[in-house]
């Protein structure tokens, strides 16, 4: 069992928890992920590690309530435990030595995964610009943390309710146009965002790393559920990734395949809601 030692609700859709997992905390590196299972009936769900404390023996997860399992995880409180936690899985992000200037881009809850990247690079002494994009002011997260881990922080909102109005891609283009030179871009967020960031960087041949989140079960290279097409070849996000060269990734395919179980998830949630209604009726 893995106890939750701290819980913070960041906004109505995003929750941050610290879990006691000393062995995982000892080994975790930016870019790696864990798989959790809340209880005996739960799914195995992958989440990228948002932070880790080697001395304190904890890892931090920041997640959006998107499906049944993340909703269930969000219902747990400090002192509660989850049944299974496996990790650290995947290959840690590799930054070549000649990279001096990096732009880290986070979209929505993807900022949770972009943050440890920015922090690690900034602490290594690199020039780190962060572009953090959100739908609106209400769901802005990690602003102070990013400020402390970047040379420049640019917050954008789709509706202009906070920071600069517009998408992260607009801000990235603006920086490039104004003469800013990046050796590398790291983009983590919704699939369309990563796809369009890659479209912006491609003409300038800026190496762009994306962190993928495909369907996954075991996370150890056994089921093949997480296969993605990169450079025309099958690669497995769990053992070859989750980071890949964004200019090689087939994002449209990934988006389609991630929808494989959407109908069933929806159906399942409807049934649960119906159950709950019936119970309240009684």
């Amino acid at each position: 069992m893995f106890p939750i030692v701290e819980k913070t609700v960041l906004n109505q859709d995003v929750v941050k928890i610290k879990i006691s997992a000393p062995l995982i905390a000892k080994k975790a590196l930016p870019g790696q992920f864990i798989i959790f299972r809340v209880d005996e009936y739960g799914e195995r769900v992958p989440l990228t590690i948002a932070d880790y404390d080697r001395e304190g023996g904890t890892i931090t997860l920041i997640f959006q309530l998107v499906g049944n399992s993340t909703r269930q995880l969000a219902q747990l409180e400090e002192g509660d435990s989850i049944l299974d936690l496996v990790g650290p899985l995947g290959v840690a992000t590799e930054i070549p030595d000649d990279v001096k200037s990096v732009c880290v881009i986070g979209g929505g809850v993807g900022c949770a995964i972009a943050y440890p990247q920015a922090k690690a690079l900034f602490n290594k002494g690199l020039d780190v610009d962060v572009i953090a994009g959100f739908r609106n002011k209400d769901i802005v997260i990690l602003e102070d943390e990013f400020k402390a881990a970047s040379t420049n922080l640019y917050v954008c909102t789709d509706d202009g309710s906070y920071g600069t109005k517009g998408f992260v891609t607009n801000m990235l283009q603006e920086q490039i146009d104004s003469g800013k030179k990046y050796d590398m871009v790291i983009a983590i967020g919704p699939i369309p965002m990563m796809k369009f960031v890659c479209k912006v960087t491609e003409p300038y041949a800026i190496k762009t790393i994306v962190s993928l989140n495909p369907v996954m079960i075991d996370g150890t290279g056994m089921c093949g559920g997480c296969r993605v097409t990169v450079g025309g070849k099958i690669r497995y996000a769990c053992v070859d990734g989750p980071d890949f060269d964004g200019h090689q990734v087939d994002f449209d395919e990934l988006m389609r395949r991630n929808g494989t179980y959407r109908e069933q998830e929806h159906e399942c949630r409807m049934m649960k809601q119906a159950d709950n209604l019936q119970q309240t009726d009684k």
Partner: peptide, 28 residues
């Protein structure tokens, strides 16, 4: 890479280890 194509390992793991054939288990 079409939706609806999977490995036998994935299909069987969902059903066996994750007990996806039983309604009380969440794995689809």
């Amino acid at each position: 890479a079409l939706v609806g194509v999977c490995s036998a390992n994935e299909y069987l793991t969902r059903i066996n280890l994750m007990k996806g054939y039983r309604p009380e288990y969440a794995t689809p």
